[in-house]
Structure formats: C-alpha cells, structure tokens
Amino acid sequence: METSTPKAHEIEQGEVVEISALAPRFEEHAFPWRQIAGYAASLLLTLGALLLVERRLLPAAWLAPVILALAAVQAGLQLGLFMHLRESLGATWHVLTLALAIVVALGIVILSIWIMAFKSGVS
C-alpha cells in the first residue's frame, strides 16, 4: 500500500498506474459461507418485516420507515455478498455508476412524493 507514489510529472504516457481503488480484487473461499450467511440474513429480515406488520409490533407511523430500512439492509446484503460488489478489476467504476443511479432513483421517488403532497388541485 504505502509504496512511494509517483508524482504526476514522473509518470510516462501510457504507463499503467496502480491506484488501490482500481486494483483487481477477488476473494476465493473453499466453502460458500458468504452465500449461506446472506441467505439466512435475508430470510430473517424478510420474516422480521412481515412479523412487524402482521402482529403490529410497532406504532403504525413507525412501521413504514422501519420495514423500508430493513429492505435497504437486505439490498446491501445482496449487493455485497451475492453480487460481489467489491470484487472486480477495480470496483470503482461500477460502484460509482450504481451510486449515481441510486441518487437519481431516490430523487425521483422522494421528490415525486413531495411535490404531489401539495394538494394544489392537479392530482
């Protein structure tokens, strides 16, 4: 990691520069522990969310934010454990693209709800 980093003027044109976020990264395992852990956690989170709603374990106003948070955790598990999000020939490119897509998606959903919450007679 902490080898001497070349200054910009020292790099020749066409030379391959090692940046840790762009370095190849792959993980090898002998047994699919990550997949099993991801599956078990997904089942727990799904059934947990279902129980919260079915048994009304929380005040109604709390339920929606809590189960949405559980869904977000589960999405993160799928991305990290099943989609090998951190593995690639430099994960930076697809992680940044996905992050941008999520910002746009949240913007579309949240701002749509917000703007339509004004009872101005158009909806």
Binding site: T97, V104, I108, V109
Partner: peptide
C-alpha cells in the same frame, strides 16, 4: 453494471 444502473432508474419511476 451500466445497464443495471439504468434499470434502477426505470424501476424508481414505477415506484414513484
């Protein structure tokens, strides 16, 4: 991955 990013936006519109 770029295609999936565009699909994220497609579904976000339908969710909205």
């Amino acid at each position: 991955w770029f295609f999936l990013a565009s699909d994220v936006v497609l579904f976000s519109c339908l969710f909205a």
